[in-house]
């Protein structure tokens, strides 16, 4: 996963086998400063108090719609603190849910893991019990392409911080 920063792009690479999360920013570094990456074990990843729950109820509604050419099903995850409504495509079968431990207290991931749903949420809205939006994302684009294994490793030019 990656997202743009003021300088460069931040990359997040979860390594399920090693139980490690690697992060780095590919932006410019000051003269004399080496490019570096951070490595964090799963137990160092903090959960958010706002969304920390012990139980989640998942409803696969059967309602479908097309997002970006992919058939998606509406799935609702309900908790004592609010709920998440997400549109999940099963047109391809990544075992995204297995990475739930990297997304602590994330209701989407908890729901996918609870039901062992092989798919990817393309859009999602999470609200608290009062109806306030806690987080949300909308679909922009999806591209099917050949992807190299190297996409999932930190470039050799970076050393561990």
């Amino acid at each position: 996963m990656q997202f743009p920063e003021a300088k460069g792009v931040s990359h997040f690479i979860p390594d399920l086998k090693a139980g490690m999360l690697y992060t780095y920013n590919d932006g410019p570094t000051p003269d004399g400063v080496k490019k570096s990456f951070f490595a964090a074990s799963l137990d160092k990843i903090q959960s958010s108090n706002e969304t920390a729950v012990s139980r989640i109820v998942v409803k696969q509604t059967g309602e479908t719609k097309d997002i970006g050419g992919f058939k998606c099903e509406k799935i609702i995850a309900s908790t004592s603190k609010g709920d998440t409504e997400m549109w999940v495509t099963k047109d391809f079968k990544p075992e995204f849910y297995k990475y739930e431990a990297f997304f602590k207290s994330n209701w989407e991931m908890m729901a996918l893991r609870e039901e062992r749903i092989k798919g990817l949420p393309l859009s999602s809205v999470t609200k608290d019990a009062a109806g306030n939006v806690l987080n949300a994302y909308e679909f922009v684009s999806i591209t099917s392409t050949d992807i190299s294994e190297t996409e999932f490793s930190v470039p050799a030019a970076y050393s561990q911080y």
Binding site: V133, Y137, E138, V140, I142, T143, I147, S148
Partner: peptide
């Protein structure tokens, strides 16, 4: 070494990274 995959872009619309496209 390449395998079929997808690159998904999503725009954050709430307080988590608002306006950013991940």
């Amino acid at each position: 070494n390449a395998q079929k995959g997808v690159i998904l872009e999503q725009k954050m619309t709430a307080k988590n990274l608002p306006g950013k496209t991940i």
